[in-house]
């Protein structure tokens, strides 16, 4: 019994040490910095002025709130659209047909691709100097590539949303395919024999069955896209700017005092994501209790 317990403790210790060191050593120290604690420049006092500055000061408030709105819009839109595309893709591809393996491969291809590469790919394809713009100009659809709609580096974040859809749809797709394959088609066949048409089978059978997995995957994708830096940095504009880019710019500021604002912004991003995750767990636990 004692040996078993020791074995468990020994096997849990290394990952726990890493988590604790990172959390308390990194994030906790970052949190202290966001409260103004910076011994390197002689600041030891703890206060919330960096948070106040970021959210309410005349200098940063507009940037912050417009950035937060853009963050929420981009994360919600890209998560929702990626999930929708993946769901319809998975529903179409799960049936047996010639070329299924190829379709499966193409759909999953983006998964191992780094976000940075996807962002650069977006510029190559969708920017006003990109392939599509030049092709449209060549075939006379538009008079010059400059007339191509602004899809990359636009203030509504379309380019960023497109990049996330392109990338995250593969993640949703793989999860949905495994769920749909494990469910089989019996529930749908049953519903069909009970009189459900195609739409009703989707609405009352497929959607409720895949929803728990789809929702979990959505939380992961939303949390990632809310806090990720590289895609908005490459495909975003200066104003409005997504919060992770804004936070990083605070860090790049030669004025070391700005680090507190940068850290406060990072903590706010982390808090929003954490609230979302806690809400998700509360919802799932409530559902389990209800069941």
């Amino acid at each position: 019994m004692g040996g078993e317990r020791l074995k468990i403790i020994l096997s849990l210790t290394p990952p726990l040490l890493i988590i604790i060191t990172l959390f308390f050593g990194g994030i906790f120290y970052g949190f202290l910095q966001s409260l103004g604690y910076q011994p390197a420049i002689g600041k030891y006092e703890l206060n919330f002025s960096a948070y106040y500055n970021v959210m309410f000061s005349e200098r940063y408030a507009k940037l912050f709130w417009s950035g937060l709105a853009l963050n929420l819009w981009v994360s919600f839109a890209s998560t929702f659209l990626a999930a929708v595309f993946a769901l319809f893709g998975a529903l179409a591809i799960r049936k047996t047909f010639i070329g299924k393996t190829l379709c499966n491969f193409i759909y999953s291809l983006n998964l191992p691709m780094p976000h940075l590469v996807v962002a650069v790919g977006m510029i190559f394809v969708f920017s006003q100097s990109g392939l599509l713009a030049r092709l449209a100009a060549q075939i006379g659809m538009i008079s010059s590539p400059g007339d191509f709609p602004v899809l990359v580096k636009d203030k509504y974040g379309f380019g960023i949303i497109l990049a996330y859809i392109w990338k995250e749809a593969a993640f949703f797709f793989i999860i949905l395919m495994s769920v749909l394959q494990s469910l089989g088609e019996n529930f749908e066949e049953l519903a069909q024999s009970l009189g459900a048409n195609r739409w009703q089978r989707f609405r009352y059978v497929i959607l409720p069955l895949v929803m728990p997995n789809l929702f979990s995957a959505s939380i992961i994708v939303f949390a990632f896209s809310f806090g990720a830096y590289e895609v908005p940095a490459l495909l975003g504009v200066i104003y409005p700017q997504m919060l992770p880019v804004m936070a990083f710019e605070f860090f790049l500021n030669p004025d070391l005092n700005a680090r507190s604002e940068g850290m406060a912004l990072s903590i706010i991003i982390a808090l929003i994501v954490m609230i979302l995750v806690v809400f998700y767990f509360w919802l799932t636990q409530a559902k389990i209790r209800k069941d």
Binding site: E189, L190, Q192, S193, L194, G195, A196, N197
Partner: peptide
């Protein structure tokens, strides 16, 4: 199937 009135 959904209009056959045959239930399984």
């Amino acid at each position: 199937t959904e209009k056959r009135g045959v239930v399984m």
